[in-house]
């Protein structure tokens, strides 16, 4: 009696699996994109942390340190399981009835988490700009706001494009954690197919390929963006 494994790659394209995959990919893309929009607030948070003192320094600092130092999985559980508990019963029941609550929570949690990481990239970008560039902007009569808005932030963004690309890739990969709260994204789909068909190898390979293709596409696009905004005459960028 042999226990040979019989490959069945059709779990990648036959019905109903192809519909599941499509749904999974759509959710992965949506969660990644919408979370990214929230995450971009990190540009503002990092700038505020770098440029202010007192409360305006403390608040973004506290935000950054809390969100980037707690594992994303724990944060997700925090928002999904613990957060609704702080509300009185009537509101909590209402929250529990929101259709796609887990989907929204995944977007918000992932967005807030990634924002803290982008804030740190932004801080590094700002720190790499020479003091005299700040002084030059001030010497032309710009206010500090104008200096950051029109000179310093655009420069810092060009500097941190490669690390922002990494974050953009990571946000799609991290969206897979949303399966733990029942969001039927790509990883969830592969798991579901594996447990229905017992073809885990094929299903996992499918998920892997999807993430890889998605990431490589992003790498390609960001390469184009990078070459578009490259500062002429600067070496090695």
């Amino acid at each position: 009696m042999t226990f040979a494994y019989h490959y069945n790659w059709s779990v990648l394209w036959s019905q109903p699996y192809i519909t599941w995959w499509m749904h999974g990919i759509r959710l992965t893309l949506e969660i990644g994109f919408f979370a990214w929009i929230i995450a971009l607030s990190g540009i503002f948070i990092g700038t505020l942390r770098s440029s202010s003192s007192g409360w305006l320094h403390f608040l973004p600092t506290a935000y950054t340190e809390i969100f980037r130092n707690v594992p994303f999985l724990v944060q997700l559980f925090m928002w999904y399981f613990a957060f609704p508990m702080i509300f009185p019963d009537t509101i909590r029941i209402y929250i529990n009835h929101i259709i796609g609550f887990n989907y929204y929570i995944a977007i918000i949690a992932l967005g807030l988490y990634t924002a803290s990481r982008i804030a740190e990239h932004m801080r590094a970008g700002l720190a790499s700009i020479e003091t005299m560039e700040y002084e030059a902007a001030l010497s032309t009569g710009m206010t500090r706001y104008q200096m950051y808005r029109h000179v310093i932030i655009p420069h810092a963004l060009i500097i941190i494009i490669p690390t922002l690309t990494t974050e953009f890739l990571t946000i799609f990969k991290n969206s897979s954690v949303a399966m733990t709260i029942g969001v039927a994204e790509t990883t969830f789909t592969s798991y579901r197919i594996a447990s229905t068909t017992f073809h885990g190898l094929e299903a996992t390979t499918g998920a892997m390929t999807i993430y890889l293709l998605l990431s490589l596409t992003i790498v390609k696009i960001s390469g184009i963006i990078e070459s578009k905004v490259r500062i002429p005459g600067m070496a090695g960028r």
Partner: peptide, 20 residues
């Protein structure tokens, strides 16, 4: 000070241009 600086131009040793 910001308004005052509009009337005072400054030129630096290492130019301090905005490289981007």
């Amino acid at each position: 000070l910001y308004k005052l600086r509009r009337n005072i131009g400054m030129v630096f040793q290492h130019f301090a241009l905005y490289p981007h």
